[in-house]
Nucleic acid binder design. Structure first.
Lengths: 195, 195
DNA sequence: GTCTATAAATGGATAGAC
DNA sequence: GTCTATCCATTTATAGAC
C-alpha cells in the first residue's frame, strides 16, 4: 500500500511541517525518511516552493473532505462541533505536532506569495465551515453567542489553533481544557429568548 | 539614545523573531540592520542559542513588567483584561508581527532544550497572569465562566495567540473581532447566582 | 568591540549517467 | 525515477589583526 512516491513525499513533508515548520526541514531530512537521495525529490518537486504548494493543496483537500463529511451529516450543530474538535484532539494526541495551517501562519512572511495565497484559501475554508455550524447551532438553540456567526467562527478557530500550540509546548491536557471552556461559553444559559 | 549594542541586538532580533521566526533569520540579516559585520554579533552572542536565550529573557522580563504594571493597579478585572488585550492589539496593529511566544512555540521542536524551558516559563507567566484576573473578575461579578480560573485562562491565551496569527495572514480586523467575542463570552448574563 | 578572512557544514538546485 | 557528482549560496562559527 505504498502510495506512489509523489503522494508519499507530500505525506511525509506535511508531517515535517507540523513537527518542525516548512523552513526548518530540508530535502535532506525528507530523503532520509524515504531512504532516497535529495536529487530524486527534486525530480518530483524541482523547487521547494513546488513542494510547499503541493503540501498546501493536500492540506486544503483534506480539510475540504473532513469539513464536507461533517457538514453533510444530519446531526445537531453541537454534534458537528464535537466532531470538528475531535480533529484537533487527534492531532494533539498524536504528539509533537501542531496544525499545518498554524505552522505555515507562523512562517507567513518567509513563504512565497503563491503559498501565502493558498494558505489564505485554507483559512477561508476553516472559517466558513465553523461559521455555518455556529449559525445552524444558534438557530437550533443549542449555541448562544452575540454578534455574527462569522465573528464567532473567528473566535473559535483562533482558540483551537492557539490551544494546539500551548498543548505541544506546555502540556497536552491544555487542548481539552481550552476546548471545554470554549464549549461552555457556547452553552445557552437562562437567557431571554433574544436569538 | 542608542542603547548599548547588546541591548540593541536583542531588540532587533526579537523583532525578526516576531516577523520571520527564530530559524528564519540569520546573523547576516541582523548584521545588515545594524550595519555591522556578522563576526561582531558573535562577539556578543557566540552561538545563536545564546542569542535565542537572550531574546527569551528579554521577552520574559518584558512580560513580567507589563503584567505587573497591570496587575498592581486598583481597577476592576474587566479593565485589567482590556489593558491586557490592548497589548495584543498594539502588536497586531504594528503590522507583520505575531507574538514572539507564538513564534517560538511554532518552532518548539527545533529549538534547543534550554530555550524550550525558558519558553515554558514565559507561558507560565502568561497563564498565571490571566488566571488571577479571571479569578478576581468572577469574584467581583464582572465575569462569568464555569470551571477553574486557570482553565479559563488557558482558553483566553489560546484565543489571543491564535487570533494574532489569523490577523497577520488573513485580515487585521480578525484580532479585534475574536477578542470582542471572547469578551462577550465572559459577560455575565441573566444567570442564577451559582458562582 | 569591530573588523577581515576563512573554515566547515548545510541547503537548494542542476547535469547527466543508468 | 533514481542515482552520483557537483555547484553555488548561505549559515553558523572561529582566528586573529586593529
Amino acid at each position: 500500500m505504498v502510495a506512489d512516491r509523489k503522494t508519499e513525499l507530500i505525506r511525509i513533508a506535511t508531517e515535517l511541517v507540523m513537527q518542525n515548520g516548512f523552513d526548518s526541514f530540508s530535502y535532506s531530512d525528507l530523503a532520509k525518511h524515504l531512504n532516497i537521495r535529495k536529487a530524486s525529490i527534486h525530480h518530483h518537486f524541482p523547487k521547494k516552493q513546488d513542494l510547499g504548494l503541493a503540501i498546501l493543496d493536500q492540506v486544503k483537500g483534506s480539510c475540504a473532505d473532513h469539513f464536507q463529511c461533517i457538514s453533510s451529516q444530519s446531526i445537531s450543530a453541537s454534534k458537528k462541533l464535537d466532531l470538528a474538535f475531535n480533529l484537533g484532539r487527534d492531532l494533539c494526541d498524536s504528539g509533537n505536532r501542531i496544525c499545518p495551517v498554524g505552522s505555515f501562519q507562523a512562517e507567513f512572511n518567509v513563504i512565497p506569495p503563491s503559498m501565502q495565497t493558498k494558505l489564505r484559501e485554507i483559512e477561508d475554508l476553516e472559517i466558513d465551515f465553523f461559521t455555518k455550524i455556529l449559525d445552524q447551532g444558534r438557530k437550533e438553540g443549542c449555541f448562544h453567542f452575540q454578534g455574527t456567526p462569522r465573528d464567532e467562527a473567528l473566535f473559535v478557530v483562533s482558540t483551537l489553533k492557539g490551544a494546539l500550540q500551548y498543548a505541544r509546548t506546555h502540556d497536552k491536557s491544555i487542548f481539552a481544557k481550552a476546548v471545554n471552556q470554549l464549549k461552555r461559553s457556547l452553552k445557552p444559559q437562562a437567557t431571554p429568548a433574544a436569538a
